[in-house]
Design a protein around this nucleic acid. Sequence first.
DNA 1: ATAAAACCGGACTAATATAGTCGTATTTAA
DNA 2: TTAAATACGACTATATTAGTCCGGTTTTAT
Lengths: 132, 132
Amino acid sequence: MVKFSKKLEYALISLRHISNAGAEVTRVRDISEKYNIPHDLLAKILQKLKKENILDSSQGINGGYTLNRKLNEIPLSELVNIIENSTSIVECMHDEDNNCMITDSCTIKDPLSRIQSEFENILKTKMISDFV
Amino acid sequence: MVKFSKKLEYALISLRHISNAGAEVTRVRDISEKYNIPHDLLAKILQKLKKENILDSSQGINGGYTLNRKLNEIPLSELVNIIENSTSIVECMHDEDNNCMITDSCTIKDPLSRIQSEFENILKTKMISDFV
DNA sequence: ATAAAACCGGACTAATATAGTCGTATTTAA
DNA sequence: TTAAATACGACTATATTAGTCCGGTTTTAT
């Protein structure tokens, strides 16, 4: 019904860890070993966060990640959008020709979508710093 | 992230249909055929709603369902609880011995759970009649 | 040069959750 | 007594999520 994915958890854990490390770079392996998170999966998550400029990275033998933005300036909604596949809260009921099955007026989808909006607004008001 | 199941959609569609039928009993087949919903699946949903006293039923050849409660007195949260499997928004990170992996204090789970509560509060304020 | 790190993409498998099916029992009007 | 309905549990199928594996390239301190 409403559930965050493991990936989002991993992202939050990582952001906290990297934030606590301050100027010191954090390797994927550091986080992966400490919290028992699969290395390859985590690596992809951090690469995404880098690409979206939430993290900074340096390559090479002493490379790793540092924070690029303040956690109290990143709304949870942003992280969710980066990490999770967005799907609409409810699909319309279609027949074979893609026509809505509820002939008169669809009074179901709109109100449910409005719930989705309300939920997304909650996520916008929460900053990552509230969680880590 | 936040998504209603098909079952919930089917339940809302059915409640609307049955509500519109008034005192006349509605068979599973009526709804199943009209909206192209799998009969057996729908049957189980309506059985659950019967068990929870949202619907009334009569068996036998002229049997079917009628409404047992007013739709404006049933919060969406109640329907969700009946239909969907409740799962916590986020599981704790455990090691093999079921100890929390985040040693100091878990600052992640609680705030995420609070989001869940806020969401559930939204669902409590919406009545089924708002959707059908 | 080498080793260890990020970086990249895609294909694959495994696990879990959701959706849907099947068989059979019970009820009841005609 | 039959046909059509609800009732119910076990099962299969599909979709989504989680995680793995491969086969690299690029970067950089030592």
